[in-house]
Amino acid sequence: MLYGTPVLDGIDDKVLAEIEEMRTDLKYRLAEPHRWDGQLRRQLQARAIQGSNSIEGYRASVEDIESIMSGEEPLDTSDSVAKEIAGCQRALTYVNVLAKAWTFRFDVGLLHGLNFMIIGHHLEKTPGTVRPGGIYIRNSATGQVVYEGPDHQAVPELLDELADWLDTGDLDAPSYVRGAMAHFNLVKIHPWRDGNGRTSRALQTLVLGRDGITTPEFCSIEEWLGEAEITFDYYRVLGEVGRGRWSPHDDTLPWVRFVLRCHHMQAQRVRRRLAEAGEVWTLLEERTDAEGLHPRTVSALYQVFVSRRLRRGMYQADEGLSQGQAARDLRELVANGWLRPYGETKGRFYAPGAKMAAIKEDFAARVQPLRDPYRALGDG
């Protein structure tokens, strides 16, 4: 028996309606291609990977994650953390492919496969296979057991039930609710020795992707979950709803509401970034044109706007340039005060120069706080 999908209240329906309204808005904005779409998608996927891994204690900068995604060596991230990042990237890339597959069904093999992609570099943890014994989640500060997973002998049957539910269960429930319940049930079954949280979050993104909720880069809440305060709330709600051991009779509405709030807040953030992207790109086009710079350099400047640094290899790949062309463009941007170089050879990168720093500061001053939908609608 799995944890059941809860009955929603009127306020939940209102929050869902607002999420759907933002989703429709994002869908129309994405329907028309823009020069900045590829960089924005990469940035969002990098932030999702960063969030999911930071929850598990594997920390890396967005810039290093983008480097890993692009096949470059990260500047600051250790080899061990880089492997965790690469594993998450593999799984989310596969999720993106499956979200668009013309024929598809959920099965247990898929769940094991996602887990193997995420932690396959830890063969000693038997990735992608059911744990051979019990599993206990401990408070890292006190060592106290806060959750005990179901007996390992019950796990295969529970996974079969989950896979069947994913294909046929509660199909009339909103996709965001089904995604939340897929996440919750898998993480509470805790079928593997490691990677359970990351696999459960990837599954949630896949459920949404299969239901046409834009693309995984835009529907994932992993970036939001990775913020320190939200990560604390994430574990708190998982603990309160799931209690100390497998107990599928408990009410799951608090968990679903937590997830809906996360979707709403992340959607606000992504919608703001999309609007900002168009405004920034247009501004950079005007400024570079006035200075007689090549139009393609806007790509490099936009990357520095959304990130803290740019590496030549990424700009070169984005614009399909030779090494010499990319190097010349970047030298010109440095000479014109747009970029500031740091480091040498493979470790060289470019940070905002005075002109770009002024633009970033101006846009940062305009940012308005996000709106908590449950508080705004009268249920704090």
Rank of each mutant, 00 (worst) to 15 (best):
residue 299 S to Q: 12
residue 202 A to V: 06
residue 107 D to P: 07
residue 125 K to N: 08
residue 260 L to I: 10
residue 176 Y to K: 02
residue 322 S to A: 09
residue 223 E to S: 11
residue 167 D to S: 14
residue 281 W to E: 07
residue 257 R to E: 03
residue 137 I to Y: 07
residue 96 N to T: 15
residue 250 D to F: 13
residue 375 R to D: 13
residue 267 A to E: 01
residue 316 Q to V: 08
residue 76 D to E: 15
residue 98 L to M: 11
residue 58 Y to Q: 13
residue 115 N to F: 04
residue 118 I to N: 03
residue 303 Q to R: 15
residue 323 Q to L: 13
residue 283 L to P: 02
residue 134 G to C: 01
residue 302 Y to M: 09
residue 5 T to K: 08
residue 152 H to E: 13
residue 230 I to T: 12
residue 121 H to L: 03
residue 378 G to R: 11
residue 237 V to P: 02
residue 134 G to V: 01
residue 82 A to D: 03
residue 357 A to Q: 14
residue 135 I to K: 03
residue 342 Y to M: 14
residue 302 Y to V: 03
residue 299 S to L: 04
residue 111 L to Y: 06
residue 37 D to W: 14
residue 116 F to W: 11
residue 327 A to E: 12
residue 236 R to K: 15
residue 18 E to K: 11
residue 140 S to P: 09
residue 358 A to R: 15
residue 14 K to A: 11
residue 24 T to C: 02
residue 15 V to R: 03
residue 152 H to Y: 14
residue 282 T to D: 13
residue 50 Q to Y: 02
residue 103 T to R: 12
residue 364 A to N: 10
residue 6 P to H: 11
residue 203 L to S: 01
residue 231 T to P: 04
residue 292 G to L: 08
residue 208 L to E: 08
residue 107 D to Y: 10
residue 71 G to M: 10
residue 214 T to Q: 06
residue 325 Q to L: 13
residue 286 E to F: 06
residue 90 R to T: 05
residue 235 Y to V: 07
residue 169 G to V: 10
residue 306 V to G: 00
residue 82 A to C: 07
residue 300 A to V: 05
residue 207 V to T: 07
residue 241 V to W: 10
residue 30 L to C: 05
residue 252 T to V: 13
residue 272 R to P: 00
residue 117 M to V: 01
residue 73 E to A: 13
residue 209 G to R: 02
residue 38 G to F: 10
residue 31 A to P: 00
residue 356 M to K: 01
residue 292 G to W: 12
residue 70 S to Q: 09
residue 23 R to Q: 11
residue 244 G to V: 05
residue 174 P to I: 01
residue 201 R to S: 09
residue 127 P to Q: 07
residue 218 F to C: 03
residue 132 P to Q: 13
residue 49 I to V: 15
residue 89 Q to E: 13
residue 16 L to E: 08
residue 326 A to W: 03
residue 275 A to S: 13
residue 3 Y to M: 02
